[in-house]
Computed example of a mutant assay.
Amino acid sequence: MRNVKLLWGIIVILTGVGLVLFRIAITQPPASVPDASGTSGEESRVVGRIGDKVITSEMVRQKVYSKYGLDVLNQMIDHLAIQLEADDRGLRVDSKEIQSELERMQQGYGSEEEFYKSMKEQVGMTKEELQEDVYFKLLVEKAATADIVVGENEISDYIKENPDEFADTEQLHLQFILNETLEQANRTYELATQGNDFSTLARERSLDINTASEGGDLGWVEENDPFVSPNILKAAKELQIGQIGQPVQAETGYAVVKLIDRKDDRKSNPEAIRESVRKQLALQKAPPIKEYTQELRKKWQAALVDVDHEFGPSPSPAAAGQ
């Protein structure tokens, strides 16, 4: 569902957008701009005008630097503290682990290309920047759980108590059009089955603001996705690929559903399941990652130097590093 597809984007926005903007600001090369006498100076070039006022690239850089610089500095210190601790403990994250985590994050997207395109469009992060973000996420988790022991019985009990979490499921790639009344939905179904393009109909007729502009595309959803109407899922599972179903009642109207594709999501690798549960239980026993990172800063004697002069008044000690 679109909500699921945007989840990672939202997380990245909260944790990474400042870094992206900061990089843009500090890497934008300065160019000359005419000074008051009409000659060419060396400060920066004009990037905006309004009336007799101008905005220069240097003004933009300074604004971004002052707004996000301290956040970026804290993030850099966090990363260095994590790396120092990992090196001290002999912990490593290899490329296979990073790729596996990225593949997990891509669930709900039609393809790897769609995922990276979405991340670039939504938050301006490249594939390399995402890989770096994932690297430090996995590394701090390893460090935080390095001394935590999870017994085999704990793992077995968890799997036994949560069978649905590890059951093989079917994934469905769906489009849908939401109408207010059954009469409207019947008309939509009639138009769709008469050869009209489903995506165009969705843009013209669907009331769902999250998907209408994208042709009603819900993306890949699990057959028991809690964010999708059970009636929609039930109808979709009975369709053949490419088939359009008759209107079904949804929570806020009536939906016409089209099944684009289907695939099995198999979770039956016992070894992988146990390792995933081991990590999950270890993280539950570990201190919160934010608190753990703060402890690493203290251990490795991190310090913010002259931040008032560089970035303006610094936050309270409790807020530093958040």
Results as ranks from 00 to 15, higher is better:
2 R>N: 14
3 N>I: 12
5 K>L: 10
8 W>A: 10
12 V>I: 09
12 V>C: 12
16 G>Y: 08
16 G>D: 11
17 V>G: 05
18 G>D: 12
18 G>S: 11
19 L>K: 15
25 A>S: 12
25 A>V: 08
26 I>W: 08
31 A>D: 14
32 S>M: 10
34 P>D: 03
34 P>C: 03
42 E>T: 13
43 E>L: 09
43 E>F: 06
45 R>H: 12
48 G>S: 09
50 I>R: 07
50 I>D: 02
52 D>Q: 08
53 K>F: 14
54 V>T: 15
57 S>I: 00
63 K>D: 00
63 K>M: 11
65 Y>P: 02
66 S>F: 00
67 K>H: 09
68 Y>T: 10
69 G>D: 05
70 L>Y: 09
73 L>Y: 08
74 N>Y: 12
75 Q>L: 07
76 M>E: 12
85 E>R: 09
87 D>K: 10
88 D>F: 13
89 R>P: 04
91 L>D: 04
93 V>R: 05
97 E>M: 11
101 E>A: 08
112 E>F: 01
112 E>I: 10
115 F>N: 07
120 K>R: 15
123 V>T: 08
126 T>Y: 04
127 K>G: 06
127 K>F: 08
138 L>M: 03
139 L>Q: 06
140 V>A: 01
143 A>C: 09
144 A>N: 15
147 D>H: 11
149 V>D: 14
150 V>F: 01
151 G>K: 13
156 S>G: 02
166 F>N: 02
175 Q>N: 13
175 Q>R: 15
176 F>M: 12
178 L>F: 01
184 Q>D: 10
184 Q>E: 13
193 T>W: 01
198 F>W: 02
200 T>D: 13
206 S>Q: 05
206 S>Y: 11
207 L>M: 10
207 L>R: 15
211 T>S: 13
212 A>F: 01
213 S>V: 04
213 S>K: 13
214 E>N: 03
216 G>T: 05
217 D>S: 12
220 W>F: 00
221 V>S: 06
224 N>Y: 05
224 N>W: 05
225 D>Y: 01
228 V>I: 10
229 S>M: 06
229 S>G: 07
229 S>C: 10
230 P>K: 06
231 N>H: 03
233 L>M: 13
234 K>A: 15
234 K>V: 08
243 Q>A: 10
247 P>L: 00
248 V>M: 07
248 V>R: 01
249 Q>N: 09
250 A>G: 14
251 E>A: 14
252 T>W: 05
252 T>K: 15
255 A>K: 02
265 D>W: 10
266 R>N: 14
270 P>N: 05
272 A>F: 00
277 V>G: 04
279 K>R: 15
285 K>V: 03
292 Y>R: 02
295 E>S: 13
295 E>V: 04
299 K>R: 11
304 L>W: 15
304 L>S: 07
309 H>Q: 15
310 E>K: 07
311 F>G: 05
311 F>M: 06
317 P>I: 07
321 G>L: 01
